[in-house]
Amino acid sequence: MVYSILATLISFAVVILLTPKFIPFLQRLKMGQTIRELGPKSHYKKAGTPTMGGLVMMLGILVTCIIFFSKADGDLVFALFVTLIFGLIGFLDDYIKMVQKNRLNSEGGVLVPYLGMLPIQKLLLQFSAAGAVAVYAAFHPSIGTSIVVPFTDLNWDLGWLYIPFVIIAIVAVVNAANLTDGLDGLACGVTMIIVFFFLVFSLANGFTSMNIFSASVIGVCLGFLCYNAHPASIFMGDTGSMALGGAVVIISIFTRSELFILIAGGVYFVEALSVLLQVGYFKKTGGKRLFKMAPIHHHFELLGHHETKIVTCFWITTAVLVMISLLSLPIMFN
């Protein structure tokens, strides 16, 4: 418990201290957010807000893991590595967006609706990283191919299905976290609450490395929220959202609790599902929309709800889902 508290405070302090220095640095590099013309009009005023703040979050986790390296084991290093890898994929996407945007602006061009890596390029990188993680986990002596089943005492051995299951889980969670990052403080707050579940789970079941790692993620989210809450002074970008998604899913893998993301991370699931339903319905009906806009947080915006109200409701929903997740862990109450 002491290590968890210290890890939270250290990662929080790193982000709190470095972000104010990082914001003007990004502004000088013209790393400002590009707002889609098809998005909610209320977001136009956010254009130019520094993005790629996820770099500071990754640094906060890195510093904390280095400090506590002697108190943990190799699992902490691998969890950090996976988080940084997905953060790097997000960084590449953010960087390409910024380069393309600045080039178009300098040439007097019209900004296109989508900038950055092509979806196929991003997915190829994500699946490659996820495949390596899945194979590593399957042959890891303390992980193996079994997962914990919510609301039971069962450990379900997936056998050869474990590797494809983990690959899909990783890619799904990383992209769901990325889709959730659409309103000030939304992805940061939701992820922080989700990771709190894994922190409690890790503490209750003796996963020392994962409780330290979980605490470091909570700390950077707390620190970043001070600057990312509405009105945001900085955005995490794909750099931060993919890193957070990678952190959530790697913690679940090491604790063999992947299925609990469906409960605790229900907001992630709904955000991603809303996009899939919107695209499928649009294609099937020849242009009609199921929601006013997807992901679903934009649907609520276009219904007239204020951004801060939507974010708060999503945080509350996640907190309730986390409590349900804790109730689904009978091992904690034995």
Rank of each mutant, 00 (worst) to 15 (best):
V56G: 04
G246V: 07
V148C: 01
M52W: 01
L277A: 12
S106Y: 03
M210E: 14
P295H: 06
M117I: 02
H140C: 00
I66C: 06
L225S: 01
I324P: 09
P164K: 10
S128F: 15
H43C: 07
F68V: 00
F127W: 08
G266A: 08
S241M: 12
L262E: 06
G116H: 04
L17E: 01
A72H: 08
A47T: 14
F69T: 11
K292L: 15
V63H: 12
V195N: 03
I67P: 07
V110C: 02
L18C: 12
I66A: 08
I89L: 15
G108M: 13
F260P: 05
M58Y: 01
I316S: 06
C313K: 12
V200S: 00
S252V: 11
G304F: 15
I5E: 03
G266H: 01
D184G: 11
F127R: 02
L273Q: 05
N178V: 10
K41F: 02
I96Q: 06
I143G: 03
L6W: 09
F333E: 04
D94P: 05
S252M: 05
S216K: 09
L118V: 04
I96D: 03
T318Q: 03
L183Y: 12
I331C: 01
W315F: 13
Y268Q: 02
L55P: 06
T145H: 07
S128K: 06
F68Y: 12
V82I: 15
A215I: 03
L302I: 12
V56S: 04
Q33E: 10
V174E: 07
I16D: 06
F86P: 15
H43E: 04
C65S: 15
H298D: 11
F78L: 13
D184F: 11
L303G: 09
D157K: 14
H43K: 11
C221N: 09
D238R: 04
F12I: 05
F69H: 11
H140Q: 00
V174F: 05
D94G: 04
L302K: 09
I263M: 11
L179E: 07
V195K: 02
V14D: 14
T19M: 15
L84W: 13
G60Y: 01
V110P: 00
L111Y: 03
K309R: 14
L262V: 10
M192I: 07
P150Y: 13
